[in-house]
Design a protein around this nucleic acid. Structure first.
Lengths: 222, 222
DNA sequence: ACATTTCCGTTGTTTTTACAACGAAGAGAA
DNA sequence: TTCTCTTCGTTGTAAAAACAACGGAAATGT
């Protein structure tokens, strides 16, 4: 519990607990048997086939949501970071096992809440649970919209179009034409479902044509 | 209200109202100013850029969730049918406009609930609202998982792999190796983001090789 | 029944991508 | 520093997809 205290302010300000006062939050953390766990780089938090009964909140670090297609190919579905939730949809869907892996990209700190335990106890009783489910609904909505955006990204025909769509969306998220991305080249390729070298080639072509400028992970739309 | 009565039983059994008794449901329908509306074939229910403040429940018919990429290309994100919800994620996310179109594939009947109106009135009061938000959370979870599955479908490298992944997933959904799909060829191509003719060619190749059998929209995995 | 339109499969050509291989730059460790 | 390992860009080649065009079958309307 002491290590949890250290992150109390951050936890309090996360979307999961939006609108709760200190008392409610503390009660909830206790009710949910909240704990903080550290994962090493490239450690698996969730595996395909796992039954998910916890709510995971990333306190610090980065996590890939991935799926291995049945011939060794890796699909990166999304990259999550601070204050993001993991696999929330599998908590909401009873009796459905995870269809994805969650793998840390670097050392990562995660807050874990035992969702099942609490909902079975305070089913209709506690008011904090009502605020929570409202928040979860909103978070899941946002995730949903981001998945749709990813579908838009990968649904473009050419590598060039995928890149431009992705970069435009990132620029919009950052409210600026200058921004940095968290993917390295290989991960970006796996996210956009293209070959890394072909993507690299297309990136430099875009730069030569004056459509974009980049240096390592710093990008700019022109 | 009379036309609504006609569909009362179906409405009552939809996932949106799961676990409600007659009294609660009737109160909710009134509170939400529920109404039934009929849309013609190829009519737009939701447009890109719309602010969504209603919950839409398909009573009968079929609807495409689509997006036009900025050069005339159509992306079909999903095909929805009876008892499915429309654009739920945009209701959950305040102040975010729809990034997709919802277009009927055939004549379609939709139940519309004025979500905004009710939530502002009975904010924390009514118990039915609590059941509702719980249900919506679960529905959204399922949608989320289906979007992930779609990402898996379209993230395959070759047309052949996309087809096999899609057909396998459909077979699993139908609990049978024999099943029919709701897409015609062009729509399936737009869903998998491939060229229709190339897809047709690949389908017949798969049939010649004895991996699948099909006739029109009836498919079988062998 | 006939005309018209839509849907689907087939083929040949062009464009795009994947794949493999390699070298250079940079990071990190000894 | 020097060596190793990872990351990234570049190139050539083989494979796959997009595209366009066509004909036949089925569905639709008159």
């Amino acid at each position: 519990m002491e290590r949890l205290e250290k992150y109390y302010n951050q936890i309090k300000n996360s979307p999961v607990f939006y609108g709760m006062n200190d008392e409610e939050l503390k009660g909830l953390l206790e009710c949910f048997n909240a704990r903080v766990r550290k994962y090493e780089k490239e450690e698996m938090i969730i595996r395909q086939g796992d039954m998910i009964s916890n709510i995971y909140l990333i306190l610090d670090g980065a996590v890939n949501i991935e799926k291995d297609s049945y011939w060794g190919r890796r699909i990166i579905i999304s990259r999550l970071g601070k204050n993001d939730n993991l696999a929330l949809s599998f908590v909401g869907s009873k009796d459905i096992e995870s269809s994805v892996d969650a793998i840390t990209v670097e050392d990562t700190l995660v807050l874990i809440l035992g969702y099942e335990k609490c909902t079975s106890m305070c089913q209709n009783a506690c008011s904090r649970h009502k605020v929570l489910i409202n928040n979860l609904f909103q978070i899941l909505s946002k995730e949903n919209i981001e998945l749709i955006q990813k579908i838009e990204n990968v649904s473009q025909k050419t590598i060039r179009d995928k890149l431009m769509t992705y970069l435009s969306n990132e620029a919009q998220k950052n409210h600026s034409n200058k921004f940095s991305i968290s993917f390295n080249r290989q991960d970006l390729a796996d996210y956009l479902n293209v070959d890394r070298s072909a993507m690299s080639f297309e990136l430099s072509k875009l730069q030569k044509e004056g459509l974009i400028a980049y240096n390592k992970n710093q990008f700019q739309l022109l």
